[in-house]
């Protein structure tokens, strides 16, 4: 393709070229808003229809790990914004530093997510034939449950079975297990797709870091850093909604 320096042939100026790249990313993000929006909609409708089972599901999530991940991800958004700033003001070494920091924080997020998934596996909360929402109250020692926590959980599950029993006479526990699986299917689909976006973001960061070693990004040319930043911040926004909806929905009981 015809190209003069950084300027591709179809553009008049570098500014126009950069505007075009940003507009392209924003339009892609519109499709992403609608994509995740559909999942949030599915979640909302099912949560409304099966509030007892979804309440149980939400309360099994580890709030400390979820909160930690929220902090990690917002911090990574800060370092990403700082990488763009460093490129704009020409501090080329710092661009690399901030990009690496963002990558490390992104990796930490995925690590914490992996710990949470493992916990769900150990607690028989992966949808499928071994799914059992009462596993933890029946085997409290293997879930680290004891004392008041165990009592609370047992009471919550009994209330949920009663609520399901009203709707499904004679099969309260079966219904609770079925509908809690619905919660966990949505939990894994939504957090899994979010994590996939993080993995793609991490790939983009690696690509940026490799180029930034040669001092490629500065005041004159930083479009890839800026556009990747838009994507990264969007993924952060998805988590800003996922965290309260999945983790905090029924904590007050």
């Amino acid at each position: 393709m015809h190209r003069t320096g950084e300027l591709y042939g179809q553009f008049e100026t570098l500014e126009q070229q950069k505007d075009t790249a940003q507009l392209g990313m924003w339009i892609f993000l519109v499709t992403e808003v609608l994509f995740f929006g559909g999942m949030f909609l599915t979640y909302t409708i099912n949560r409304h229809a099966f509030s007892a089972a979804f309440g149980i599901g939400g309360n099994t999530l580890d709030l400390r790990l979820g909160g930690l991940n929220t902090v990690i991800l917002i911090m990574s958004s800060l370092t990403m914004a700082m990488a763009v700033w460093a490129a704009q003001v020409g501090k080329k070494k710092r661009v690399t530093g901030f990009l690496i920091a963002t990558l490390i924080l992104g990796g930490a997020f995925l690590g914490v997510k992996a710990i949470e998934y493992k916990q769900k596996y150990d607690h028989h909360l992966i949808p499928g034939s071994t799914f059992n929402v009462t596993y933890c109250v029946n085997n409290p020692s293997s879930c680290g449950l004891a004392g008041k926590q165990l009592e609370d959980e047992r009471r919550e599950i009994e209330e949920a079975i009663k609520a399901e029993e009203n709707e499904n006479p004679g099969s309260g526990l079966i219904a609770l297990n079925a509908h809690a699986q619905l919660y966990f299917s949505l939990y894994f689909a939504m957090t899994g797709l979010h994590a996939l976006h993080m993995v793609i973001g991490a790939g983009l960061l690696l690509w940026l870091i490799a180029q930034s070693f040669g001092g490629r990004f500065g005041p004159g040319y930083n479009t890839p850093v800026e556009v990747t930043g838009l994507y990264w911040h969007f993924v952060d926004i998805v988590w800003i909604y996922l965290f309260p909806l999945l983790y905090l929905i029924d904590r007050h009981n």
């Binding site: 229809a49 499904n168 006479p169 099969s171 079966i174 219904a175 079925a178 509908h179």
Partner: peptide, 11 residues
């Protein structure tokens, strides 16, 4: 209509 088929089968 959103309910799991498992619940109706048992009934």
């Amino acid at each position: 209509f959103l309910r799991s088929p498992a619940t109706t089968v048992t009934r």
